[in-house]
Amino acid sequence: MSVEVEVNENDLAEMVEQVWESYLDPEGINPLIPTYDENQPSEVHSSVSISGSWTGHIVYACSIEAARRAAAAFLAMEPDEVSQEDLSDVLGELANIVGGNVKAMLPPGAFLSLPQVVLAPESTARFPNTERISGVYGIWDGEPVSISMWHSRADNNQEDGA
């Protein structure tokens, strides 16, 4: 198990809150309301992988509508003006921001991948041999959004050249 990793749900929740304060809800009127439902549905997701001192993934998953609203907030446009490219780009950046902040809490020598975006529901099949170690699940403006952290079970001490 990942005894050395001290990123808990509260840390993750705080980062999520900061992302909302900075980009998705600067006026503080539309927070992510926790549901604690690990099985809530998603339609699209993005992820970044971390390697080195810790191996795993940070996954941002949500409904298409939530992704559209997030993109609209980022790009200062109306939700119905958001293109698929906008949506992918913003989803990727959201995973990147949360992932970068998680990485800073891991032991030194962790590396962040560029984000990957999949316009399909989150599926554990995409992250084989991993287990979920922490997650924030909630409803934003009536739409499901989750941010979760998955640790690779086969953490085979890769050598890294920093």
Binding site: S22, N96, G99, G100, N101, K103, P108, L112
Partner: peptide
């Protein structure tokens, strides 16, 4: 999003004048 202390130090040493961590308002 790189927010380790060591990364900030590296960037300043390389010649960056300031450093803003994402997310930022």
């Amino acid at each position: 999003t790189e927010s380790e202390q060591s990364q900030i130090v590296r960037a300043l040493a390389a010649g960056a004048h300031e450093y803003v961590i994402k997310p930022f308002t």
